[in-house]
C-alpha cells in the first residue's frame, strides 16, 4: 500500500505517462480509422455479426490496411521500448522523492546510457530464460489442462523477470550500480527470487497490469463497434499504468529496505 501511496503522491507523473500513451495510441488508432473510413465511403456496413468476414474482405481489397495494423504494433512496441528506457530514471527518482522537473529531465539523459545497457542485458537474460522455459513447457501444450500449466509457468517467469528489471534499474539509478555490466542484471534476478516480500507484490501487480492490457484488447474485440468501447479500453490502459508504476514503486521501496536509506 505504501507503494501505491507513493504513486498517488505523484499525480503529475501519472498524468504524464498516461497522456503519452493515450496520445500515441489515439494518433495511431485515428490513422487506422481514417484509412478504413476512406476505403469504405460512401458504403455502410451492416455486418450483422460478420465483422471478421467484412474485415477480411476489406483487407483483401485494400492490402495496405493490414500493413497499417502491423505498423501500429511495431510502432507502439518501439515507442514503448524507447520511452521506458528514457523515462526509467526520472520515474524512479520521482517515485523515491519529489524532484524538480528540470532535475528529472537532466537525470533522464544523464542516466540514459546506463539504463539502456542494463535493459539490454536484462532482455538477453529474459530471452534465455523464456527460451529455456519454452523448450520445457512446449510439449505440455498438446496435453489438455497441462498446457495451462505451461502458460502459467511462462507468466510467472515473465513476472519474475519484470521484477528483476525494476530492481536492476533502481540499483543503477538510485544506488549507482554498474549499469554497463551484465552482473547488475544477473544480481537483480538473484535478488528477486531471494526476496519474496518484494517479488510477490511485484508479480501480482504485473499480473494485474497484464490483465488490464489484455483486457483492453479483449474489450475492443468483444464490444467491437459499441458506443463507449474506446473509453473502457482507455480506462483499462490507465489502470494498467497505475499498476505498473506501483510495481516500480515496490522496487524503489525494496532499495530502502535493503540499504536503509531513502
Amino acid at each position: 500500500m505504501t507503494a501505491l501511496r507513493r504513486v498517488l503522491r505523484a499525480p503529475g507523473l501519472i498524468v504524464l505517462v498516461v497522456a503519452i500513451q493515450l496520445v500515441v495510441a489515439l494518433i495511431l488508432g485515428s490513422g487506422v480509422r481514417a484509412a478504413v473510413g476512406a476505403s469504405l465511403v460512401p458504403y455502410s456496413l451492416a455486418t450483422d455479426g460478420h465483422l471478421l468476414g467484412a474485415t477480411f474482405e476489406l483487407f483483401g481489397d485494400h492490402p495496405g490496411l493490414p500493413v497499417g495494423f502491423r505498423q501500429v504494433a511495431v510502432g507502439s512496441s518501439a515507442i514503448a521500448l524507447v520511452l521506458w528506457i528514457l523515462l526509467a530514471a526520472p520515474v524512479i527518482h520521482r517515485l523515491r522523492s519529489k524532484t524538480p522537473a528540470a532535475r528529472l529531465a537532466a537525470l533522464a539523459f544523464s542516466q540514459l546510457p546506463a539504463i539502456g545497457v542494463t535493459t539490454l542485458w536484462h532482455l538477453a537474460l529474459r530471452i534465455v530464460l523464456l527460451a529455456a522455459l519454452g523448450l520445457l513447457t512446449a510439449p505440455l501444450l498438446d496435453h489438455g489442462a497441462w498446457g495451462l500449466l505451461g502458460v502459467a509457468a511462462t507468466a510467472v517467469a515473465l513476472a519474475i523477470s519484470t521484477c528483476a528489471l525494476d530492481l536492476a534499474r533502481c540499483h543503477v539509478v538510485l544506488h549507482g550500480a554498474r549499469g554497463f555490466h551484465y552482473s547488475t542484471a544477473l544480481r537483480a534476478y538473484r535478488e528477486a527470487v531471494r526476496r519474496p516480500a518484494v517479488l510477490v507484490p511485484s508479480m501480482l501487480l504485473s499480473f494485474g497490469q497484464w490483465t488490464c492490457v489484455a483486457g483492453a484488447v479483449a474489450v475492443a474485440m468483444v464490444m467491437a463497434g459499441a458506443g463507449g468501447t474506446i473509453w473502457l479500453v482507455r480506462g483499462l490502459a490507465v489502470l494498467g499504468v497505475v499498476l505498473g508504476l506501483t510495481r516500480v514503486a515496490v522496487a524503489v521501496e525494496a532499495g530502502f529496505d535493503r540499504t536503509g536509506r531513502g
Binding site: 505517462v17 500513451q21 493515450l22 500515441v24 495510441a25 489515439l26 495511431l28 488508432g29 485515428s30 490513422g31 487506422v32 480509422r33 481514417a34 478504413v36 473510413g37 469504405l40 465511403v41 460512401p42 455502410s44 456496413l45 451492416a46 455486418t47 465483422l51 467484412a54 474485415t55 476489406l58 497499417g68 495494423f69 501500429v72 504494433a73 510502432g75 507502439s76 512496441s77 515507442i79 514503448a80 520511452l83 521506458w84 523515462l87 526509467a88 497484464w210 488490464c212 492490457v213 489484455a214 483492453a216 484488447v217 474489450v219 475492443a220 474485440m221 467491437a224 463497434g225 468501447t229 474506446i230 479500453v233 490502459a237 494498467g240 499504468v241 505498473g244 508504476l245 510495481r247 516500480v248
Partner: peptide
C-alpha cells in the same frame, strides 16, 4: 452516414488503439 458511420472504421480503429495501448502497457513502465 454522418450519424452511423460506416460500421467498420470505428471497431477497427478502436482495436488498433487498444493494441497500441496494450503493447505500450506491456513494455512498461
Amino acid at each position: 452516414y454522418d450519424e452511423e458511420g460506416d460500421g467498420l472504421s470505428r471497431p477497427l480503429g478502436d482495436l488498433a488503439e487498444a493494441l497500441s495501448l496494450a503493447l505500450m502497457g506491456s513494455f512498461g513502465p
